[in-house]
Design a protein around this nucleic acid. Structure first.
Lengths: 252, 252
DNA sequence: TTTAATTTGTTCGTATGTATG
DNA sequence: TCATACATACGAACAAATTAA
């Protein structure tokens, strides 16, 4: 190998970064499990042989990443938190709000994920899962009369059941996150929609179409219908120029 | 609305959190633009009327989120960084390394992402991007003789150029992260592969197939070929029972 | 090139409010 | 109620790094 013996570029690592790295490492390694406790700040400054401030900077970073939570006076030390989609939501939403990421890209990504989830679900779903999807579809219909909040919750439940049936938890988590961020970005426009009841009925019709494809095991159709429905539902919120990038995902 | 007049649960906000919130706000508002500088830590402690430790905790959090960068001795203060999807890398990587996530799910996810990236690239790519993809393909061929590390780097470059051509930066960063995690999981097995040169030649053949589909604008074929190639490349590392979940993504 | 001023990185000591037993 | 250990926050100090005169 010609690379052997080559040097790698270095960046001065600050003390708090080394601490964060060690604790993150223990987390991915499983040495540190959700629910367990970190040593107290004073113990940590002894173990890492750094000052209290340095330990605290590391803990603040870990806390802002949603990995731990520390409370004043807690004699057990900081708590290691279980994984949550929040960890991904915050940075994604921030990026979208700062226009580092367009709404078009987010919806495009969602079309890909939802389409694939439905494709997989159509092929791999059990009969119980078909029943569960059907049930959440009926729940959506009921929820129309209970207002938008209830309907939205039922909508989320539907997609979760489908993603569950796909058997891929990565799709499930990513879909959840992207959906939430998209809704957060356009919720004001959604609130001002002229006829929300009509929108909800249209949504139920769309979801019914998807359900039938999944039930019949028609994975090609399930995939395509899911993408088309998302496009129809969201296209109006998008700028003209990004329209063709979404249309690229529609056929077949 | 029946919820009106209800109280919201509160959480004591720590000083550093309030500072982070204010700076993030200025960032989304556009008051603070990428490339501009934050005041020095001593200025900030005066403006927020807190101690320097508190200012520093806030700066460390913003820095770990990839929003700013501070260097020792810089008289201009911390630099506001441009918004980039790269900020999603760390949280995404934590997700992909999440406990209970199987190799099969990761590869399935990568098949979906790469397939979609190629599909989009086939439809949206410019002539310059076709040329760039071709160039990185030639680079892969050259790198075979330079060893696995060089080849792997060229491989990464190829996928990056394709993902770039897809126009969706979310696909780019997700593919990157998932690929890295998959490689980390099986690198020991890859090291022990009997004939790595043959593997690399096979890989180049696969990539050539994808390139031709993208060049010809055949998005259906680009999508399918990308999925199949990934399956063929990785299937041998997978347990028997998850094979059918990957095969579900192969046809058409 | 050297020097001087300023900034960040880090440490230490202290005061205050809080949770637990 | 009290004692203890904890986190929060402050402020002074010094070293190392950077920039500009």
């Amino acid at each position: 190998m010609s690379e052997e013996g080559q040097f790698q570029p270095v960046r001065p690592t600050r003390a708090y970064e080394a601490i964060v790295a060690q604790i993150e490492d223990a987390l991915t390694r499983g040495t540190l499990r959700p629910g367990s406790r970190l040593p107290s700040e004073r113990d940590l400054m002894r173990q890492f042989s750094v000052s209290r401030s340095t330990v605290r900077e590391a803990l603040r970073v870990l806390e802002s990443a949603g990995l731990i939570r520390s409370r004043p006076g807690d004699p057990n030390g900081a708590e290691v938190l279980p994984f949550s989609t929040m960890h991904l939501r915050k940075p994604l939403e921030r990026l979208a709000r700062m226009e580092g990421l367009s709404l078009g890209e987010l919806i495009q990504f969602r079309m890909i994920l939802e389409g694939s989830a439905n494709r997989l679900a159509a092929q791999l779903r059990t009969d119980e899962q078909v029943e569960a999807i059907d049930a959440s579809l009926r729940r959506m219909s009921e929820a129309i009369d209970e207002g938008y909040a209830a309907f939205s919750a039922a909508d989320v439940a539907f997609h979760d059941v489908v993603a569950q049936a796909s058997g891929n938890s990565l799709i499930l988590v990513c879909s959840d996150v992207v959906r939430d961020v998209v809704l957060a970005l356009i919720e004001d426009k959604l609130q001002r929609a002229p006829d929300r009841a009509a929108l909800m009925r249209q949504s139920v019709a769309h979801h019914t179409e998807v359900f039938e494809a999944v039930r019949d095991g028609d994975h090609i159709r399930a995939d395509q219908v899911a993408r088309c429905n998302l496009y129809e539902y969201y296209a109006s919120y998008l700028p003209e120029e990004s329209d063709h990038t979404l249309r690229a995902l529609l056929d077949k």
